[in-house]
Simulated scan of single mutants.
Amino acid sequence: MYLIIVGLGGIGRNLVDIATKDKNDVVVIDQNEKRCREIAARYDVLTILGDATQKSILEEAEASRANALIATTSDDAANLMMSLTAKGLGTKKIVAVVNQEEHVEMFKEAEIFLFENPDMTVASHLYFSVKRPKIKDFLTVSGGKAEIFEVVVSPESPVVGSRLSKLRIKGGLVVAIERNGDVILPRGNTVIQTHDLVTIFAKAPEVEEISLMFAP
């Protein structure tokens, strides 16, 4: 893929690392000359020193042929402006970081794929990792109305030895089971075993109760 990454803060630098390791063609835009020099010395990327809200800078980056532009700056107004400009130039996919919750609707109205407040996402993840230690990993979806989470079945769980068809999981659905390194697509006759890593999709209010079924 041909990717344009705007902003060389923490998110932008990590994106460059991931994208180049995956053998993508990467163009980086930033207004900080030192950051541009450092990233160019470390990675095989094209760096452009400039303001990506300016059409001429995006044209220099050949946004018209880019598979995607990812806007990662801490300025929501700038992220929105460059996203709209790139969209007008024909960039196929636009993704933007939205730092302030009150700006989310503007990005949605512009039909720009967004990643909301990364600092709050990290903070929430850390907090719930402490609050719900039995849950191994989780992802919030639908604006926090639902979660996809993983939990390891404990020997004390009442569901051990039960078929999925016999379990009453209110507001949730088992979508995958990892057992001894193999991934199982669960069916009604799938039997839950101790130490299974179970992936569950559930409505947010039901997560606590469902997780306790598998790991009390």
Rank of each mutant, 00 (worst) to 15 (best):
V95P: 00
I112N: 07
G172K: 02
A204I: 06
N180M: 14
F214E: 09
K131E: 15
L69F: 04
R132C: 01
A86F: 11
H195T: 06
E111C: 03
I18G: 00
E147K: 10
K166R: 03
I210M: 01
H125D: 11
S162M: 12
K170S: 04
D196V: 07
V141Q: 10
I94P: 08
S165R: 15
R35W: 01
K134M: 09
E147N: 08
N117Q: 12
R132S: 04
A202P: 04
R42N: 13
P186S: 10
K170C: 00
S211N: 02
F115R: 03
V26F: 05
I169S: 06
Y43F: 14
N67L: 08
P186N: 13
H125E: 15
G7Q: 08
Q100S: 03
P155I: 05
I210F: 05
L80W: 11
E147H: 02
Q100R: 15
L197A: 05
T199H: 11
T20V: 14
T53V: 08
E62V: 04
R168I: 06
G144I: 09
V183E: 08
E150Q: 12
V130R: 15
T47H: 00
K170E: 12
G171F: 06
L185F: 13
H103N: 15
E109Y: 00
A78C: 10
F128W: 04
E116Y: 11
V6T: 09
E38A: 06
L15M: 05
E33Y: 02
A68G: 12
K145Y: 10
V191E: 09
A68H: 02
M213L: 13
A110R: 12
V6R: 05
A146E: 08
P158T: 07
P186Y: 10
V153C: 01
N180Q: 12
L126T: 03
G144C: 03
G161H: 02
N24E: 12
T91W: 14
R65A: 14
L69E: 02
E33V: 04
G50A: 03
L185I: 15
P216A: 07
A71V: 08
R65M: 13
A96P: 05
A52W: 08
V175Q: 01
D76H: 10
G188Q: 09
G144R: 04
N24Y: 07
E116M: 11
F138D: 13
D30T: 03
P133Y: 11
D17W: 03
L3H: 10
I5E: 01
N99T: 06
Q193V: 00
N180V: 08
E178G: 03
T72I: 05
I39K: 04
E111F: 01
D25C: 01
R179H: 02
E206T: 07
F128V: 02
V122E: 10
S154E: 13
T199R: 14
H103E: 15
A110G: 07
D75T: 00
S56F: 02
K34W: 01
D17E: 12
V151G: 06
G181Q: 11
M81V: 11
V97R: 14
A41Y: 00
S157M: 05
D119M: 11
K87A: 07
G50S: 07
S74D: 13
V174P: 04
L197E: 13
V104T: 12
I169R: 05
K166D: 13
G181D: 09
K21N: 12
R13L: 12
L8H: 06
D17G: 01
T194D: 07
S142R: 02
L164T: 08
L167S: 11
